[in-house]
Design a protein around this nucleic acid. Sequence first.
DNA 1: ATGAAAGTTATTGTATACAAAACGCGCTCG
DNA 2: CGAGCGCGTTTTGTATACAATAACTTTCAT
Lengths: 219, 219
Amino acid sequence: MSRASEQAYATIRAHLVSGAVSPNEQLTEDQLAQIAGVSRTPVRDAVRRLEDELLLVRSDTKRLFVADWSRDDIEEMFALRQMLECHAAERAAQRLSRAQIADLETVNRTLKEAIEQPAPDVARFLEANRAFHDVIIDAADSPRLAQMLAKLVEAPVVLRTARNYSLDDLRQSARDHDELIAAFAASDADWARAVMGSHLRRAFHTFARAVGPAEAQKP
Amino acid sequence: MSRASEQAYATIRAHLVSGAVSPNEQLTEDQLAQIAGVSRTPVRDAVRRLEDELLLVRSDTKRLFVADWSRDDIEEMFALRQMLECHAAERAAQRLSRAQIADLETVNRTLKEAIEQPAPDVARFLEANRAFHDVIIDAADSPRLAQMLAKLVEAPVVLRTARNYSLDDLRQSARDHDELIAAFAASDADWARAVMGSHLRRAFHTFARAVGPAEAQKP
DNA sequence: ATGAAAGTTATTGTATACAAAACGCGCTCG
DNA sequence: CGAGCGCGTTTTGTATACAATAACTTTCAT
């Protein structure tokens, strides 16, 4: 994307994720333009993307509001992600080249290094984790699938959730990745799907635990 | 959406679907603005939507081209649709109200009427078919799922494929719908999923037959 | 002839001014 | 007292002019 438009997107997104605004708060394009330091034109571009990600929503009369994600929303997104990414794993198992499998191994080595530190480097872990999943999605060779997943994968990051992953959680992830690699090496689509399924389902529960158990949501 | 922007979207989409342009042909925003009779601003809006639907694609340097869908693309979309819509059927089975089930029955009655004519009214069939699936997707109560499906469901319509559905195809669809309704009435999610799966899979083969068997695609 | 560099044209991106639509508020009239 | 109606204000939508970038063409050196 072009400079101003990309700038607007990044700035606004950061602004939303930072928690500087509260759910259901109204925003105007002018405000956002000021925040991003560009004119309304690229802001409107950015807003459309953020609407697509459901970080912003529009009232029936086109006014902009900060989205309010309920626990149901989060569960929905995890469910969809699981469904799609299991499919991706299945396809990837039938398509991954040797080189790509080697890439996965390298990435997962990096991921383990990020964990096994005096203090685990969570940012690096997340980055490697993302790279790992990206290789798989890429290998699945399904542009629409990739497009859909891109939206869903970003989501958890969005919630300013304490990243209180335990060391065990991180290590289990790494082991899941190892098993995925094994499944890929064996070109066993069923195996890959199953491992991906449990990998993501566990991630959901870890996440749900962190974000708080199913509370009664908003009055 | 606002008037000009919606106008642009509809006009350009019709233009693309009509076959007046060929795949990989370059388009400029100016051309499209002229065609739609509005300025470039709303055209850019429309173009983004069409990009999202993958009817238009951009080169690495932002130039616009008519998308070229391969058979693989079509298979991909059917596979994704099947996955998502089976999920929708499952959720719908747990959520549909009596009133909604009654709606499904009404819609399917309309659908049958459209078939059982001297000459089957395909347009009306398609409309009813769409309404039927929309009720289910709506009942699934998953906005992101709905959003994803919206893109995929439009797709087959896009291809200027001869709608040479046979009478048998149409009748089988109606029967599938009846069975779906039965599954919903019984609140049997597994049943609903299974019926939806075969319903869509058959549709794929009907479609594939119509569009021509797996040929060697472009050189 | 060939390929690189500079200049020219075509195309997309951004800012700004204005138009249209929605909102809020006070007012009137029942 | 309250529901509906104008009217000024706010907010979004559109057109247009201009800036930036990419594609194309010509020229010139080798």
